[in-house]
Deep mutational scan, measured.
Amino acid sequence: TTYKLILNGKTLKGETTTEAVDAETAERVFKEYAKKNGVDGEWTYDDATKTFTVTE
């Protein structure tokens, strides 16, 4: 399944996708990605669109 991440950081904005077996796995991948890019904020997930959003 393809999951999407929307980054709404103070200095970094953008989108990325990952293939994962479930939302929990995708969330771990995306949180590591955000951490590596210095983005830390509020996380939300929309199951209907398989989209995570992190907003600083």
Score class of each variant (00 low, 15 high):
residue 54 V to D: 01
residue 49 T to Q: 07
residue 55 T to P: 01
residue 13 K to T: 12
residue 32 E to M: 07
residue 40 D to H: 14
residue 47 D to R: 05
residue 40 D to L: 12
residue 20 A to V: 05
residue 42 E to I: 15
residue 33 Y to P: 00
residue 11 T to A: 14
residue 6 I to N: 04
residue 11 T to N: 15
residue 50 K to G: 04
residue 1 T to P: 14
residue 35 K to D: 09
residue 15 E to Y: 10
residue 34 A to F: 03
residue 52 F to V: 01
residue 10 K to L: 13
residue 8 N to L: 13
residue 29 V to N: 06
residue 14 G to A: 14
residue 48 A to T: 11
residue 55 T to G: 04
residue 27 E to I: 08
residue 44 T to K: 07
residue 54 V to G: 01
residue 52 F to G: 00
residue 15 E to S: 12
residue 23 A to W: 14
residue 52 F to I: 01
residue 52 F to S: 01
residue 34 A to P: 00
residue 37 N to Y: 13
residue 54 V to N: 02
residue 42 E to C: 09
residue 51 T to N: 02
residue 35 K to L: 11
residue 8 N to F: 09
residue 35 K to V: 13
residue 47 D to A: 10
residue 29 V to E: 09
residue 31 K to M: 09
residue 4 K to M: 07
residue 8 N to Y: 13
residue 14 G to N: 07
residue 33 Y to Q: 03
residue 41 G to L: 02
residue 40 D to I: 14
residue 9 G to R: 04
residue 31 K to V: 07
residue 45 Y to C: 01
residue 24 E to K: 13
residue 54 V to I: 08
residue 26 A to K: 00
residue 28 R to E: 08
residue 53 T to I: 09
residue 48 A to C: 08
residue 55 T to S: 10
residue 17 T to S: 09
residue 6 I to E: 04
residue 39 V to K: 02
residue 40 D to W: 15
residue 9 G to L: 14
residue 24 E to P: 09
residue 46 D to H: 05
residue 45 Y to H: 02
residue 56 E to H: 08
residue 35 K to G: 07
residue 55 T to H: 08
residue 15 E to F: 13
residue 29 V to D: 05
residue 25 T to W: 08
residue 18 T to G: 03
residue 38 G to Y: 04
residue 15 E to K: 08
residue 14 G to L: 11
residue 31 K to D: 03
residue 3 Y to K: 00
residue 11 T to R: 12
residue 29 V to F: 15
residue 30 F to P: 00
residue 3 Y to C: 01
residue 43 W to E: 00
residue 4 K to I: 11
residue 12 L to S: 09
residue 35 K to Q: 12
residue 4 K to D: 02
residue 45 Y to T: 01
residue 40 D to Q: 14
residue 26 A to T: 01
residue 40 D to C: 10
residue 5 L to S: 01
residue 39 V to Q: 04
residue 17 T to P: 02
residue 19 E to M: 11
residue 42 E to M: 13
residue 48 A to K: 14
residue 16 T to Y: 15
residue 17 T to H: 12
residue 13 K to L: 07
residue 10 K to P: 08
residue 34 A to V: 09
residue 21 V to E: 13
residue 40 D to N: 10
residue 53 T to S: 07
residue 48 A to R: 08
residue 51 T to G: 02
residue 49 T to P: 02
residue 37 N to T: 10
residue 31 K to W: 07
residue 14 G to W: 15
residue 48 A to H: 10
residue 23 A to F: 14
residue 27 E to M: 14
residue 24 E to N: 08
residue 6 I to T: 05
residue 3 Y to Q: 01
residue 13 K to H: 12
residue 25 T to K: 06
residue 2 T to Y: 10
residue 29 V to R: 10
residue 43 W to C: 02
residue 56 E to N: 06
residue 7 L to F: 12
residue 12 L to Y: 12
residue 5 L to E: 00
residue 31 K to R: 14
residue 28 R to V: 10
residue 50 K to Y: 10
residue 21 V to S: 14
residue 40 D to E: 15
residue 31 K to E: 04
residue 12 L to Q: 12
residue 34 A to I: 06
residue 20 A to R: 03
residue 40 D to T: 12
residue 9 G to C: 06
residue 22 D to R: 04
residue 41 G to A: 02
residue 14 G to E: 14
residue 27 E to K: 10
residue 26 A to G: 02
residue 20 A to Y: 02
residue 36 K to R: 14
residue 8 N to K: 12
residue 14 G to Y: 10
residue 24 E to L: 12
residue 3 Y to H: 03
residue 14 G to V: 15
residue 47 D to Y: 08
residue 40 D to F: 14
residue 14 G to I: 15
residue 18 T to V: 13
residue 30 F to M: 03
residue 2 T to P: 06
residue 16 T to N: 05
residue 39 V to M: 08
residue 35 K to N: 12
residue 16 T to W: 15
residue 13 K to D: 05
residue 17 T to R: 07
residue 5 L to G: 01
residue 24 E to I: 15
residue 9 G to V: 09
residue 36 K to Y: 11
residue 27 E to W: 14
residue 41 G to C: 02
residue 20 A to W: 02
residue 26 A to R: 00
residue 23 A to H: 14
residue 53 T to N: 05
residue 27 E to S: 09
residue 10 K to N: 09
residue 19 E to N: 14
residue 20 A to L: 03
residue 25 T to E: 14
residue 29 V to M: 11
residue 44 T to M: 10
residue 31 K to T: 05
residue 11 T to K: 06
residue 8 N to D: 15
residue 40 D to G: 10
residue 32 E to N: 08
residue 47 D to W: 08
residue 36 K to F: 11
residue 18 T to Y: 14
residue 20 A to D: 03
residue 21 V to L: 14
residue 2 T to Q: 10
residue 54 V to Y: 02
residue 25 T to F: 08
residue 17 T to K: 08
residue 37 N to I: 15
residue 53 T to P: 00
residue 23 A to V: 14
residue 21 V to Y: 13
residue 17 T to G: 04
residue 52 F to T: 01
residue 47 D to Q: 11
residue 13 K to N: 10
residue 35 K to P: 01
residue 46 D to G: 02
residue 54 V to F: 05
residue 28 R to A: 15
residue 44 T to C: 06
residue 29 V to A: 12
residue 48 A to W: 08
residue 23 A to E: 07
residue 46 D to T: 05
residue 30 F to A: 01
residue 42 E to D: 09
residue 31 K to P: 00
residue 14 G to K: 14
residue 25 T to D: 09
residue 10 K to V: 13
residue 21 V to F: 12
residue 48 A to F: 11
residue 46 D to C: 07
residue 26 A to Q: 00
residue 34 A to E: 01
residue 6 I to S: 04
residue 7 L to N: 02
residue 52 F to Q: 00
residue 54 V to M: 05
residue 37 N to V: 15
residue 41 G to P: 01
residue 11 T to Q: 10
residue 55 T to W: 15
residue 8 N to T: 09
residue 6 I to C: 05
residue 41 G to I: 01
residue 54 V to R: 00
residue 19 E to V: 14
residue 43 W to H: 01
residue 41 G to N: 01
residue 33 Y to N: 02
residue 4 K to V: 11
residue 27 E to A: 13
residue 37 N to E: 09
residue 26 A to N: 00
residue 46 D to R: 03
residue 18 T to D: 03
residue 27 E to F: 15
residue 39 V to P: 02
residue 45 Y to N: 01
residue 22 D to T: 06
residue 53 T to D: 03
residue 49 T to I: 08
residue 50 K to C: 05
residue 16 T to S: 12
residue 44 T to A: 11
residue 10 K to I: 13
residue 5 L to R: 00
residue 46 D to F: 05
residue 35 K to Y: 12
residue 18 T to R: 05
residue 23 A to C: 08
residue 22 D to P: 01
residue 6 I to F: 07
residue 21 V to W: 13
residue 53 T to Q: 06
residue 51 T to V: 08
residue 13 K to W: 12
